[in-house]
Design a protein around this nucleic acid. Structure first.
Ligand code: SF4
Ligand code: SF4
Lengths: 148, 148
DNA sequence: ATAAAAAAGGACAATTTTATCCGAATTAAG
DNA sequence: CTTAATTCGGATAAAATTGTCCTTTTTTAT
């Protein structure tokens, strides 16, 4: 199937955007609240937030009044960064057709067309900050969970 | 991870393109030859070819001199068709962020940007025939397997 | 008819991804 | 200092995907 992101990546993106919607108030959010807000399984989300904290994208605070918050400015965190953290940086050099290496001198039959798509995706992820994404949520123009 | 295609889909695409490179000569290809040509595990590839034959994209012929061949003209089979067969048609309506439904009235925070990417991908798959893809292989300009 | 060649199909195994559970560690507050 | 709130980490489970193996069926060629 055509998957753009793994579940882990999907939840990461939504969780970080959610945190960004609350960062103005510098409010931490706790796990149950985050999972609720983005409609993700709580225990699995915990693992993901841990990972994001280990990789310094989030700050986690234990104990009462603890929770998770962004480590840094929302406008300096790109979607690319999140994806990179969850899947390593070999991602955007990975290959839709399973080649070891995407190369102009040994291309697959759809090289140019697929490369354009990948560049398109990479560009969007690089240039979209979570502040931008969170902004539309704050204004009620977009949502972090699906209609049932 | 950012996956564009499952392995099943990846092998399907490569197998069908491979068959297209041989369809001029109206040559059938047998499983071992196909798997060899596209660098895929033979038994798994067998399952996939079976599925493609069941769905009438290929014709399979049992017995000596049997094998697989395209069912129809290579220039009338799009990459889209292959992907659709392997994953059902809900694919291009699926959601990178796991929404039940991608909707302009209840959009995710990156709706417009992601929609553009998906439309880009869909367009490429719809407009690329396997004849076109196979052509560049025939001319030695592209390849079906990676360099090691 | 017979034998050989091939795909078909079913059962199963390995791997990866997704998910749950629970006890331990840490921290804040009283 | 004690307690409660919270994340952390390890073990494990469930599900999906990928992969293998073996027997049966069909077909061609002799
Ligand atoms: S363009 Fe072709 S070779 Fe390069 S990553 Fe995409 S599918 Fe692989
Ligand atoms: S645009 Fe947003 S809602 Fe629509 S499919 Fe993509 S991620 Fe899902």
């Amino acid at each position: 199937m055509i998957i753009m992101f793994s579940k882990a990546c999907e939840y990461s993106i939504k969780a970080v955007i959610y945190l960004a919607t609350r960062s103005e108030q510098n409010q931490r959010a706790r796990l149950p609240e985050i999972a609720e807000a983005i409609g993700s399984p709580e225990a699995f989300t915990a693992k993901i937030l841990q990972e994001l904290a280990r990789k310094k994208l989030l700050i986690s605070v234990k104990g009462p009044k603890g929770g998770f918050e962004l480590n840094g400015d929302a406008d300096e965190i790109s979607l690319y960064k999140i994806v990179e953290i969850m899947d390593g940086d070999s991602l955007f050099h990975g290959c839709a057709l399973g080649f070891k290496k995407c190369s102009d001198v040994h291309p697959c039959p759809v090289h140019n067309k697929f490369k354009a798509i990948r560049d398109h995706l990479t560009g969007v992820l690089l240039t979209t900050s979570i502040k931008e994404a969170a902004g539309t949520v704050d204004e009620g123009q977009s949502f972090l969970t699906s209609l049932k």
